[in-house]
Design a protein around this nucleic acid. Structure first.
Lengths: 258, 258
DNA sequence: TCATTTAATTTCATATTATGGACATTAAAC
DNA sequence: GTTTAATGTCCATAATATGAAATTAAATGA
């Protein structure tokens, strides 16, 4: 999914290779062995061995009893620090809790993570049927409400360039995979102020999204209201009006001026 | 805090340098500038510049408008994967929830992260006054109940070697900083089956800890019950008996045999 | 049990990358 | 406008990272 999308800095090639291996381990369904990784990376055996040893020495991965590799706990503590350094979480929390209380549904806060988004906060609904998502979950731009909202808030040259670089893999059978229709839909999102997706990202889940803008009128994050389809009300206005008002309030707090 | 404790793998020196810079950024109270990092790292300007560019290209850090560096969102998504790969979370969750319900206090699950521990799960009490800790919070071995419990469950040679390598910085004015008295206390922990700390790690908080053992009789994780001091009951038996029973149940699930 | 095959780990000559002294550019302060 | 401070870049070469080959360990099959 996230293959080969990081720029390789001159004089940092081996660093880039090491992070690629780390991502490989993150992306495997089952903990991979050295042999598994040898097949799925472009490295030779000694190089891979050294990279894995280095990752392990740093606590970024660990090898279990049967010599299979998993991600290590140091990532958890680093991420904790990353979240603590993310100012928008604090700025948005209160307003998003109100949004959750108003609508009774789960609210996500997402920021850009290379060519996708990642949830950095989740305010859960009190309903019994809830979302499987959590902080750290990645969602693609093209199939998520937060992604579409973020794209729509970008300068359209940037948005188009970003879309052109996306893999556009389908998440469900409802996911659109056409870059042209996504670009076209963004015009609608821009004019109505919110985005919508119905089971494009997760079966049975419908989401509304809107962007949070900063002082430079650039999207800083986006917010979704996620609703199980069976609970979706006929009148979408309830969702969209509250969502847009919340995003506007947070945007103002970030210094956005209409 | 975590300075210079990772082994440097031959043929991976520059990788190690890069991760050290990443940790520096994580450890700063305020987002550091290039100049700040130049002072606190042993790298020269061009090298540091290249390392930062590489970290940024990988989404591990980001530079904000005033050229200050923060940790990036990719760490959040990687940590999400790390937690998903940590089997003990699933194995322990139900039992730890019961423990929380029995005692009415917050329960933490911690694993080893190089020379300290990191919380990988937190089951919160329903009381109004709660813990400021969260998943990803790091705690030192010497001042935390989870740390002492983990050390006590280690082979004593390993425990002593680990203690000898610890910085033993005080977290509060109650923290012990003597390696000898810590080693001595571990004997008591080993015989009674639980550890205890009163405001050694955090003002106003008292913790009981016990270790979870695996099939090789090695500590895999440890658990704490954290109590605000004003809520602490006279009879500690309530806490310790339930805690030890929970850890034993989880240990059995990991294949531990008495 | 033993021989063979496969997988993991290590070595070391050298190709390639990463380094840092020197310089350039930009931004901020006076 | 000038000076100082901070950030960014270049390129010769020192140092590190690489990978072919060797060694060791583990798994498999007769």
């Amino acid at each position: 999914m996230s293959e080969g999308i990081s720029e390789v800095i001159k004089g940092a090639k081996s660093f880039s290779r090491s992070i690629k291996v780390l991502q490989l381990i993150a992306d495997q369904g089952q903990p991979p062995s050295l042999g598994d990784l040898l097949e799925s990376s472009e490295l030779t055996r000694p190089t891979l061995y050294r990279v894995l040893s280095a990752l392990e020495a740093e606590g970024l991965i660990l090898r279990n009893g049967n010599k299979r590799y998993k991600l290590g706990s140091r990532l958890v503590s680093l991420a904790h620090r990353a979240l603590a350094q993310t100012d928008i979480r604090d700025a948005a929390r209160g307003t998003l809790e109100q949004l959750r209380d108003t609508l009774g549904e789960t609210v996500h806060l997402a920021i850009c993570n290379r060519n996708e988004l990642v949830y950095i906060d989740k305010i859960e609904s009190l309903e019994l049927v809830r979302m499987s998502s959590s902080i750290g979950t990645r969602v693609p731009f093209h199939s998520s409400a937060v992604g579409k909202a973020f794209l729509a808030a970008l300068d359209s040259t940037k948005a188009h360039a970003l879309i052109d670089s996306l893999p556009m893999s389908p998440m469900t059978e409802h996911s659109g995979t056409s870059k042209e229709s996504l670009k076209s839909y963004l015009k609608q999102v821009k004019s109505q102020g919110y985005s919508f997706e119905s089971e494009e990202n997760e079966k049975g889940i419908v989401c509304f999204g809107a962007a949070i803008l900063n002082a430079n009128r650039q999207p800083e994050a986006s917010v979704s209201v996620s609703v199980p389809k069976f609970r979706l009300k006929e009148d979408h206005n309830d969702y969209t009006v509250s969502l847009m008002a919340a995003c506007e309030a947070i945007s103002r707090e970030l210094g956005w001026i209409e």
